[in-house]
Amino acid sequence: MLSAIGKIKNMHQRRKNPPLAFKHQITFLSRTCKLLDKGYPLVKSLQMISWDVQFKKVTMEIIYELNRGNPIDIAFKKANFSRQVTSFLYFARIHQDLPALFRQCRELLQLQHTYKQKFKEAMRYPIILLIFLIGSFNVIKHTILPSFSILFESGNSSPWSLLILKGSDIALTVLGIVFMFIVLIAGGFILTNYKRPTSQKLKIYIRTPFLRSYKMFTLTFLFATHLSSLLTAGLPLKDSLKVISDQTKYPELAFYSSHIQNQLKDGQSLSASIHQCALFREELTSIFHQTNDLPTLASELQMLSELLMDQLKEKLMKAVQLIQPIFFIIVACLVILIYASIMLPLYQWMDQI
Rank of each mutant, 00 (worst) to 15 (best):
R207V: 07
T32R: 04
A233E: 01
Q311N: 15
I62R: 00
P251F: 09
L227H: 00
S30L: 03
A332K: 00
N17S: 14
G135D: 03
F88K: 05
F181W: 10
K141F: 10
N10V: 07
N138E: 11
S82E: 12
Y347N: 07
P251M: 06
L130R: 01
I204Y: 08
F288S: 00
S147Y: 08
H95L: 01
Y40N: 04
L253W: 00
K249M: 14
H289F: 09
M60Y: 06
V53K: 15
M317W: 04
M48V: 11
L109S: 05
I204L: 12
S229H: 04
G135R: 02
V243R: 02
I206C: 05
S149E: 14
H275T: 12
S257H: 02
L145V: 13
K16L: 15
K56G: 01
M180F: 15
I26M: 05
L172S: 00
I204E: 07
W160Y: 09
I177K: 05
T114E: 08
L301I: 01
S45A: 15
D73I: 05
S199K: 13
Q96N: 12
R106D: 01
R15N: 08
E61T: 14
K242E: 10
R124V: 12
L264Y: 02
F223S: 01
Q84S: 11
R212C: 12
K38H: 06
E283M: 09
Y347M: 14
R124F: 15
L284V: 06
L241A: 07
H24T: 02
H12C: 14
A254Y: 07
V178A: 11
T192N: 11
A21W: 03
P159S: 09
A224N: 00
A332F: 12
S199G: 11
A340D: 01
P159V: 12
Q13K: 15
Q276A: 12
M350N: 08
F255D: 03
E306Y: 11
K116W: 09
S199Q: 13
W349P: 00
F179A: 12
Q348C: 08
N138P: 02
S240Q: 05
P236S: 14
Q84K: 10
V174D: 02
K203C: 06
V178E: 01
I336V: 15
M309Y: 12
Y194V: 11
M216T: 08
L231G: 05
L101D: 01
I329D: 01
L108E: 08
S50R: 09
R31W: 10
Q290S: 15
F327R: 02
E65W: 05
V320E: 05
T232G: 04
L344R: 00
L191H: 09
A186M: 11
L42R: 01
G176W: 05
T27A: 07
E283S: 14
V53G: 03
K116Q: 13
Y90T: 07
A21G: 08
K313V: 15
L307S: 13
D246Y: 08
I62G: 04
Q54S: 13
V335Y: 06
F217M: 06
L312R: 12
R124S: 15
K315I: 11
E252S: 14
Q104P: 02
S269C: 07
